[in-house]
């Protein structure tokens, strides 16, 4: 099989010769200009480093108060996990579920998967399920909304400021760092390159 000799643009179905990318080079579809692949220097190292950093900050953001409010002498602090509680207790379980999945579970599962896949690549061990995990990581991507949540926080922040003093907790900063690293990781994680590596790892050629 010569699967690696060709690539098909997944938006316009154009058959193309597989790009051989040097460090820092990008490949685009000549017809629809779709970005096909980028070869990053130390790509797999970067993916793993960013993913693990993001994981650390995601877990840290669960542990502390997220936002604090001070209105008319009343102080109130919530952690991220408490906000689920409040939503569930006010009969908005479906919102809590959407929130939980899109802001936490999708990024968490993606990151764990990425760490698993890239550890396997890094150690060059064909562990079981690596491909299935990578498949799910790819599929989950559109549903990751953690960066939108950050914007949501900022908007609500501005909305509340006139009502009360808002203090940002440690979790907030931790969450910001998590989102930054997650996006850095997803940027460096190149689908095409990853599967090329996996193809070699599982000796398909």
């Amino acid at each position: 099989m010569a699967s690696t000799e060709y690539i098909i643009c997944h938006e316009c179905d154009l058959l193309l010769a597989a790009p051989v990318l040097g460090i820092g080079e990008k490949a685009h579809c000549p017809r629809c200009k779709l970005h096909l692949s980028t070869h990053y220097r130390n790509g797999s190292d970067k993916v793993l480093a960013f993913a693990s950093s993001a994981l650390i900050f995601l877990l840290a953001s669960m542990a502390f108060p997220f936002l604090g409010l001070n209105a008319q002498g009343q102080k109130r602090e919530i952690s991220l996990l408490e906000s689920f509680d409040i939503l569930i207790s006010s009969d908005y379980g479906i919102l809590a579920l959407i929130f939980l999945i899109m802001v936490f579970l999708v990024p968490l599962c993606s990151l764990l998967g990425i760490v698993y896949v890239y550890t396997a690549i890094k150690l060059w061990r064909p562990w079981s399920g690596v491909k299935a995990v990578m498949k799910w990581v790819t599929r989950l991507q559109p549903w990751n909304m953690s960066e939108i949540f950050i914007i949501g926080i900022l908007v609500s922040f501005i909305k509340i400021v006139s009502l009360a003093d808002v203090n940002l907790g440690l979790s907030f900063w931790s969450f910001i760092l998590f989102v930054l690293f997650l996006n850095a990781c997803l940027m460096v994680l190149d689908r095409y390159q990853t599967w090329l590596l996996l193809r070699r790892l599982y000796s398909y050629d």
């Binding site: 936002l67 109130r76 919530i78 409040i86 939503l87 919102l95 949501g152 609500s156 909305k159």
Partner: peptide, 17 residues
């Protein structure tokens, strides 16, 4: 989804008896 998250955050925060 921004607005949804805003609503979720406000609902979680603004609970003042």
């Amino acid at each position: 989804m921004i607005d949804i998250f805003v609503v979720i955050i406000l609902a979680a925060l603004i609970q003042f008896g």
